[in-house]
Amino acid sequence: MTRMTFAEAARRALAEEMRRDPLVWALGEDLVQGGIFGQYKGLAEEFGTDRIVSTPISESTIMGAGLGAALCGTRPVVEMRIADFTLCAMDELVSQIAKVRYMFGGQGRAALVVRMPQGMWRNSAAQHSQCLEAWLTHIPGLVVAAPGTPADAAGLLKSAVRSDDPVVLMEPKNLWTAEGEVMEEIAPIPFGVARHAAQGDALTVVTWSAMVPVVEQAARESGIACDVFDLRSLWPWDEAAVIASARRTGRLLVVHEAVTVSGFGAEVVARVVEALGPGGLRAVERLGSPRAPVPFSPPLEDSIRLSPARVADAIRRVAAVGA
């Protein structure tokens, strides 16, 4: 095990994949310069500017070219800079990449990775802070992964590169500099397998992405025995693990940074209720952002941001119902 940042873990994983497979290459803005979070640092020097390609600010073509390149046998890593800019390439992602295999009857596949760092990033305001994972889990054809630790950032990136499906990888912007333990040998992490982050019988807590360290801290500080799952991938997601846990604890809390309304937490809760029946849970709660854009000023941003203290309150609230 080595301690390293999220960005360094992701950088290493991509470098290893590019060494392993000469068909892997990356395209996006400022990549030759290392990417805006340093997650591509040094890769242009090692692999050359034909494989680490700095592009114009042309999101439709960054995304669409990724598809064309995948259809001609290469494995592109498409960098969107941040998830918000994916909105400038939605047709290419949703109506082209996600559809091509199906619509053409399996003749071609979009075996590519779309990286889109997302979420709040200190004082970046409404156009640079969105969490849009629920939009993309709604689209058939896409795999959606959202790592919350350096080790998972590396392992999920490896799986994403090797997958024959188009994989959307949503790295949490706020965690690029966070540190964690990463194995010397980075192994691919399969999609649809949650990380069982803490064990307990009092309630089931489900989270992902930037909320992972927040929930882990809250669970420790709450003094309550939480069964915590970091989903790591949202489509497919580990329904079996979450349902089994909720069946045992009878209490479910889902925590995500995205707006609560129509967030992916709604899907998690709905699936658990379908599986356990309407009376299967004693308590259930979704904790996310209010349905408001992310504001700029630090105190305003903090009033939206979920803190460990607020998550711990929710944990106590859910644990207390009918106890």
């Binding site: 068909l23 290459w25 395209l27 034909d50 494989r51 390609v53 439709s60 073509t61 995304m63 669409g64 070219a65 990724g66 598809l67 064309g68 390149a69 995948a70 259809l71 001609c72 046998g73 290469t74 592109p76 047709d91 290419e92 109506s95 082209q96 091509v100 619509m103 053409f104 071609g108």
Partner: peptide
């Protein structure tokens, strides 16, 4: 034949990427 397309103009970025892959390989 990499596909007809129901979205006007959508083939243009795809063609660019196809050409990039052809160069790379």
């Amino acid at each position: 034949m990499l596909g007809a397309n129901g979205v006007v103009g959508a083939g243009i970025p795809i063609a660019c990427g196809a050409a990039q892959a052809i160069r790379l390989t």
